[in-house]
Nucleic acid binder design. Structure first.
Lengths: 237, 237
DNA sequence: TAGGATTTGTGCGTATGTATT
DNA sequence: TAATACATACGCACAAATCCT
């Protein structure tokens, strides 16, 4: 999340727009967050501050700063004297987030909608092509990455920055849990369903109907959650 | 924001539900956040880590942890070698947050609405009484506190926890800016308007129509923002 | 332009809490 | 129950960045 508020920016110096330390923070933050969301670190995995410190060549202090932020975002939980663990989300909490995401999906197409340029549409078309390739050789991690990239395109529809930030946070909180619930045998089906969602949205995008996109997305979020509840529990991974 | 996700809780130990350090964190966090939102620390105010460390009797480390969180929430901004400052929010960003808050206000009455008990209604009635007392002796800080307390009652209408957290965050980001824009001469008028909003919502609450509350609130958020834009700029304070 | 004062960011040793033997 | 192992939380000294004289 980028801050909504801004101070009057420094007057003279231009080059280091972001302080060096903030850049490093974001690099480490994004790296670890992606690993969590791609299930490289599944729920209940234990993360060691010291190992990250060695990997990124810094002391534990900036690492703790990153982990603290990820904890605030709900992806981690630290316990004094025990360790830092990737969170799981129980089904009731998950249901609440999905319900909220459904409403926010609609708002993405309504609040300050930004008309899609040909370049925007082309990028989405490329994502559909990636999905077709993925259908040939199903792979959970590649599927997760594609899903994330597609979400970014949807998020870019609105000019309302706080809405983007909030949607993004809720997406990262829940999609990893949903992804984990998909049994390997059903991955092919999920890819087919996802391709259909992308195709529907692409069509609405080509005629410039952003509001319709919101409702299409809403329906797919709803159906995804319902499919998830029907899959037999496969917690261990 | 409280975490949506939870790990399997420790099995045996009951008493220290929250670790001692986490309790301290929240105590300091709430204290400083309230000071920012009550304009004890207005936008552009400079906060010193060392002073907080002395005030709360700890080292800079846990203070930095709190300030870091407040920065993530958009209330502060730290700059290396310069200082930590309370943020301002420009009018465009403010408009986006208000627009989003309007939509979320409606959702507060729709998503998992929790029926109001007589005790709930009584608390709101007491807030109206506080407003009447305030009208006799207008005071910006008491007005801000009353506004915060009323918001908490509205937030409590939904059982959807992530919605509550997000609404709360956006409220704290913007209300202090709105409050600051009210010229002293118009404070009486704002109090009258606010009393009317509370009375309208109280009436809807008494008949159990939570959805109506959402729409009443939405209209008042919209009107508040429009009044704010008309007030002559009185940034300095 | 250079240098000192001040403040945030980092590194590291220690205290504290938890689990296990 | 006591002791040991180990991880997070804290305190402090120093580095880095910025501002002002």
């Amino acid at each position: 999340m980028r801050p909504v508020a801004q101070l009057a920016s420094a007057r003279s110096r231009r080059p280091p727009r972001k302080s060096l330390s903030r850049e490093r923070f974001e690099r480490i933050y994004n790296t670890i967050r992606d690993r969590i969301c791609l299930l490289d670190y599944p729920p209940y995995a234990r993360l060691a501050e010291e190992e990250f410190a060695q990997e990124f060549g810094v002391s534990r202090t900036p690492i703790r700063s990153v982990l603290s932020r990820l904890e605030a975002e709900g992806l981690l939980q630290s316990r004094h004297g025990v360790g830092t663990f990737v969170t799981d989300v129980d089904i009731e909490a998950l249901a609440q987030v999905f319900q909220l995401r459904m409403e926010l999906a609609v708002l993405l197409g309504k609040l300050d909608p930004l008309p899609r340029t040909p370049a925007d549409v082309a990028r989405v078309r490329a994502l559909v092509a990636r999905c077709d390739a993925l259908a040939e050789a199903p792979d959970p991690r590649a599927f997760a990455r594609l899903n994330m990239d597609f979400f970014q395109e949807l998020s870019a529809m609105t000019g309302n920055q706080p809405l983007r930030e909030i949607s993004e946070r809720l997406y990262y909180q829940t999609t990893r849990i949903w992804l984990r619930s998909v049994p390997r045998l059903n991955l092919r089906d999920e890819i087919v369903v996802f391709r259909r969602e992308m195709a529907d949205i692409l069509a609405a995008m080509e005629v410039g109907d952003l509001e319709a996109i919101g409702y299409i997305r809403r329906s797919h979020i709803s159906m995804s959650f319902n499919r998830m509840r029907l899959y037999p529990g496969q917690k261990p991974l």
